[in-house]
Deep mutational scan, measured.
Amino acid sequence: MKKYKITVYDEKTGEKHTIEIEMSEEELEELAKKLAEKHNVKVRIEKV
C-alpha cells in the first residue's frame, strides 16, 4: 500500500477538499471514479 493525496474539487460551489490516504492503487482508482460519478466533482491524485 502506498500513501496518496486526494484533492476533490466541486466546480459549482468552488469547494476544494484534500485528504491523505493509504491504500492500493486499484482501490484508489475505484474510489476516485465513484467520487467523480456520484458527486460530479473533479478528483486529482498525487503520490506522497
Score class of each variant (00 low, 15 high):
Ile45Asp: 01
Val48Glu: 05
Gly14Lys: 07
Tyr9Trp: 13
Leu28Glu: 02
Leu28Gln: 02
Ile45Met: 01
Glu30Leu: 13
Thr18Gly: 03
Asp10Ala: 03
Glu26Cys: 09
Glu37Thr: 09
Lys12Ile: 13
Ser24Cys: 14
His17Phe: 15
Glu22Gln: 07
Glu11Ala: 11
Thr13Leu: 05
His39Asn: 08
His39Arg: 04
Ile21Met: 12
Ile19Phe: 15
Tyr4Gln: 00
Ile6Gly: 00
Ile21Gln: 05
Lys47Val: 15
Gly14Gln: 07
Lys33Ala: 09
Glu26Gln: 10
Thr7Asn: 01
Ile6Leu: 07
Asp10Ser: 07
Val8Ser: 03
Lys2Arg: 10
Val8Lys: 01
Asp10Leu: 05
Glu22Gly: 02
Glu20Val: 14
His17Gln: 12
Tyr9Thr: 11
Leu28Thr: 04
Ser24Tyr: 14
Lys5Ile: 10
Ala32Pro: 01
Ser24Ala: 08
Val48Tyr: 04
Glu30Ser: 09
Lys2Ser: 15
Leu35Ser: 01
Glu15Gly: 09
Ile19Ala: 06
His39Pro: 14
Lys33Trp: 04
Val43Leu: 04
Leu31His: 02
Tyr9Gln: 06
Leu28His: 01
Lys34Val: 07
Ile19Lys: 03
Lys12Glu: 13
Lys3Cys: 05
Thr13Ile: 02
Ile6Ala: 00
Ile45Phe: 04
His39Met: 09
Asp10Lys: 02
Ala36Ile: 10
Ile45Gln: 01
Glu30Tyr: 11
Glu30Arg: 11
Glu11Arg: 07
Val41Gly: 14
Arg44Asp: 14
Asn40Cys: 04
Val41Cys: 12
Lys16Ala: 10
Glu29Gly: 08
Val48Asp: 04
Glu15Asn: 06
Tyr9Gly: 01
Met1Cys: 07
Glu25Gln: 09
Leu35Asp: 00
Ala36Leu: 10
Glu27Ala: 10
Asn40Thr: 05
Glu11His: 09
Asp10Gly: 02
Glu26Thr: 12
Met1Lys: 13
His17Met: 12
Met23Pro: 00
Lys12Asn: 10
His39Cys: 14
Lys33Glu: 06
Ser24Leu: 13
Leu31Tyr: 14
Ile21Ala: 12
Thr13Arg: 04
Lys16Asn: 10
Met1His: 11
Lys33Asp: 03
Ile19Met: 13
Ile21Trp: 04
Glu20Met: 13
Glu20Trp: 13
Glu25Pro: 06
Val48Leu: 11
His39Ala: 13
Val48Lys: 03
Ile19Ser: 06
Asn40Asp: 08
Lys5Val: 08
Lys5Gly: 01
Gly14Phe: 06
Thr18His: 05
Lys42Ile: 15
Lys5Ser: 05
Ala32Ile: 14
Leu31Met: 06
Leu31Cys: 09
Lys34Ala: 10
Thr18Arg: 03
Val43Tyr: 03
Thr13His: 04
Lys34Gln: 09
Ala36Gln: 11
Asp10Phe: 12
Tyr4Trp: 14
Ile21Gly: 08
